[in-house]
Design a protein around this nucleic acid. Structure first.
Lengths: 258, 258
DNA sequence: TCTTCATCTAGTAATTTTTACTAAATAACG
DNA sequence: CGTTATTTAGTAAAAATTACTAGATGAAGA
């Protein structure tokens, strides 16, 4: 959605190529240096912060739509997106709040309430994690701003997106115990302390300095490299990389992390 | 949907009180005496077996809709329904298969392809477990037949419902390890062998005769009663009941079953 | 009545996993 | 070269899981 012409066509004819009444919203978590952030956009129409979201093309699967939406709206590409829950409470979109005057001001169109967009919508929630330091954000006609927010300093979100974030976080943490993560969140070579810090940040709690890395190694997820990293006036920790075979197997079959 | 008049109104005006493009499908598992079954309906229009499904009223939450749909279509009431996944592949409904002649024969309406029903639909999947011996099935205008099928003798299902069942089963088994079940599946008083058989049937594998019940007791889920059950020429096993307090707590907080 | 038999279940031993703790190795700095 | 903070191997203690044994039991049948 680059310009007003495209946007006008979307408003008038969108229902022909998108599935009406169904949207997708994505909770994109970003990690870097023990900081956990969430990607939000400020929607030009509701004038508040939301999860990046959009509609499903009639030719797409839900996963493909989620991928495209995040790419278009935020510039973040190639994410591992995971469906977590679908939201459909009748009051979630708060159609009653619709402001006809503001709609006209922004779109130049009358009869906003008859638009295919302004009707009850069920939303499929996806979540993902990425390294926020590697992303290049951009905006489009709908998202006036795109930004990473500290996970414990989020603004109030529009619609039911607060509940979505809570649910996404809950699912993410449950899944952390059953599936490996880190492949796109850490450099190719990392220390045991770095991967432990990653898990601690995502889980929001301390893990054992010695036992947790041993568990990862016992599961066969890590390859010990001969190189070391220099960290100043301390013993240099070994570098590790992921054992890609074992990692992918764990993604399929699941693991048990204590 | 009791009669043709109601059904005709549904065809013509359904989009006014239902949310178009979104449906709900329910995988209702039934347990009794070490048998696991699945509730299916034979849909009068596609002329094949499907999961019971329907549309969402514009005033309902997803959960309320799922409850109502199962009650209306099958007669089973008051189920604990759990959302498990949303399905939206563009080819899942196989609109291409639509048969205009058959549509006219059944509905007396021309222009079937313009109906709000015959358009791409995204479906939210719910699952539940109940005691099939306690249910009283009935049919309606859409479901020509309603029946319990043995889980390993299912007929080929229409649409993508085979995949839905597989996914529902997968989620159910994962959740069995984290949440207690049995409250509506066993009599108020039951033996350790009976509850073990329940878990064995649902998980599809053998559990230790001695250790598994000990685990349930250790978790505080069971009350030992003073009564016993007579099972013929053998030692009479003790009867147990659920500790409702601990059971509900486990539902909220989760447990770990080995 | 007494033996037989299949099942239930308490008890415990063996094993594995988890958790807690100790101390040696080490790299850079002053 | 001693100091210092960190990494990490190693092991001991505790807990949980799994495997196994044997007595208890209730009814059927001799």
């Amino acid at each position: 959605m680059k310009n007003e012409a495209e946007f006008r066509d979307f408003l008038l004819n969108g229902h022909l190529y998108y599935v009406p009444h169904v949207s997708i919203d994505c909770a994109i978590f970003g990690y870097h240096d023990q900081q956990l952030k969430l990607l939000l956009i400020r929607n030009r129409f509701v004038n508040g912060w939301c999860l990046p979201g959009g509609y499903i093309l009639r030719t797409e699967t839900l996963g493909q739509a989620a991928s495209r939406i995040v790419r278009e709206r935020t510039g973040v590409d190639n994410l591992f997106l995971q469906q977590f829950k679908t939201f459909g409470d009748p009051d979630r979109a708060q159609i009653s709040k619709f402001d006809e005057a503001r709609w006209f001001e922004l779109t130049g169109l009358r009869d906003g309430k008859k638009s295919w967009l302004i009707d009850q919508t069920i939303s499929v929630g996806f979540y993902a994690i990425t390294d926020f330091s590697k992303t290049v954000l951009h905006t489009d006609f709908i998202s006036a701003e795109t930004a990473w927010f500290d996970i414990d300093r989020l603004p109030r979100l529009e619609f039911d997106h607060d509940a979505m974030v809570k649910e996404a976080m809950h699912t993410l943490r449950l899944q952390l115990y059953h599936y490996p993560i880190g492949y796109n969140l850490l450099p190719a070579k990392f220390t045991l302390t770095e991967i432990r810090a990653l898990y601690e940040t995502l889980l929001g709690k301390k893990l054992d300095v010695s036992n947790f890395p041993k568990k990862l190694i016992a599961l066969g997820l890590l390859n010990k490299l001969s190189e070391k990293r220099s960290i100043g006036a301390h013993r240099s920790p070994h570098l590790y990389s992921f054992n890609k075979t074992r990692y992918n197997q764990a993604l399929k079959e699941g693991i048990v992390l204590s």
